[in-house]
Design a protein around this nucleic acid. Sequence first.
DNA 1: AGTTAAACCTGGTTGC
DNA 2: TGCAACCAGGTTTAAC
Length: 280
Amino acid sequence: MPELPEVEVTRRGIAAPLLGARVLAVRLGKPLRWPLGRPAAELAGTTVGEVTRRGKYLWLPLHRAPGVGPAGSGGLLLHLGMSGSLALLPAAPAPGVHDHFDLVTDRGTLRLNDPRRFGAVVWSPSLHEAPAATLLQRLGAEPFDPAFTPVALHTALRRRRAPIKAVLLAGDVVVGAGNIYACEALFQAGIHPALRADRISRPSAARLLAALRGTLARALDLGGSTLRDFTDAHGVSGAFQAEAAVYGRAGLRCRQCGGTVRRLVQAQRSTYFCATCQRR
DNA sequence: AGTTAAACCTGGTTGC
DNA sequence: TGCAACCAGGTTTAAC
């Protein structure tokens, strides 16, 4: 489910209400992708700092007054995986079968619902130490970083021979685009998804970066995409999927040229594109 | 070194 | 209706 817009929409929904919240307890459900890495009980008594985002990860700092309690300061690195969503519940009902993590605070319960359990909640002493740093180290540029210029994108793509769609998905050049937004950005840029990344011209790279930023920003405005189960921290669905140009529209008319949207498989994922509009 | 498959897990949809 | 096969918003790990 969650690509950058969905993760950022989630972050915006929980950051302010959780800032300064006192952690009362942590409840774990079934195992997620990795273990928490710290006894859950040791998180009680910490104070939540400002929630930040890197790629599709969220960082939730947990501070503790020096000398008080077992665990020192650190934080939780969260990932929503394929099917995860976070909700901040003023009064949390009994957890359902897919509720696998609860952070109970004096401002409500932050609850992770993740049917497929590809998501993760991992304790780390800081963002710059293992295990958080290890998980984040291969991530590419933030798409909205002003320092990430069209030239920088073009330079990075020149070293890659894989199809541009696969390179976008890999996230080691630029983070944030998953299957939906990679397809949509390539459509907006008029670039064929099977084009080798190192064959992309500088003007094309510039169009791609603009298209990626535009697509992600539009999705952010619309609260993300809700294909089956994504909701923001307040339980509200996203609306981007309704205006997707190609994603999930195989066999349907291209909204731009009237041709037929096609589907192919790249890097084990479905790619949707218009062979007429995407040639470069 | 770089690219591509396999793996993790559950549930909904499709087709025989 | 039943059941197998396939599909799904991600990313690490192992294998060419």
